[in-house]
Amino acid sequence: MTTFDPARRKLLGRALAFGALTMLTGCNFDDLQHPDLADKFLRLMSGWNNEVQAVLFSPHTLAPTFKASEITRPPRFNAFYDITRAPQVDLAGWRLELGGLIGDRRAWRIDQLRALPQESQITRLICVEGWRVIGQWSGVPLRHFLRAVGADTRARYVAFKCADGYYTSIDMESALHPQTILALDFLGAPLTAPFGAPVRLRIPTKLGFKNPKSIVAMEVTNQWSGGYWEKQGYNWFSGS
């Protein structure tokens, strides 16, 4: 049936194994300006996984909620920098800048946000690294805020910029989820600097890094803008 040449087979097998090894174990996402073939393949698959997660996402499926006794204490700080370098935002001068497909783009002061109806949640934050914490956040449901400012909720994305240079964006379906809130309080008190003062996004249907802290600007847009970690290789949708 076949002409079997063991030497040729062996060589072919070794070449394949070597190729696979060098391709797999090499650096990926190490040089963003010069993506290699593996980087391009991984980006392609990550894009496919975004689509799959959008299909899996249900606006009616709620993230589990927990009892007050289950809250993680002390709370766990996490950022791409040390806790001492968390941005100290001057509350009096702070404004939430609005941009993009929003009817009323006037900036918001913190007392204006506090005057809106607030909702509280005790939910679990799951980090992309695999650990999780339970915390209590309260603030303005994002869907209420988006309607209050006349945002075009048929747009595809809501993008956030932060005081520390961090940025990320989420899909509109997730932005309108009832548990997605602009959190002002954490554990019953106004947010402190390490935990995202004065306003952070709390979105328990996504991984931790999709919960930007110390937000200074929000944009409703059809333009995909990725994010700080997403640019480096984390999956953009990162739903839970």
Partner: peptide, 18 residues
């Protein structure tokens, strides 16, 4: 391990799973 850092490892994992 495969993937130099967590982001690359997750990308490989969620590509190979298909």
């Amino acid at each position: 391990t495969i993937g130099e850092w967590l982001g690359a490892a997750i990308a490989w994992h969620l590509a190979a799973i298909w």
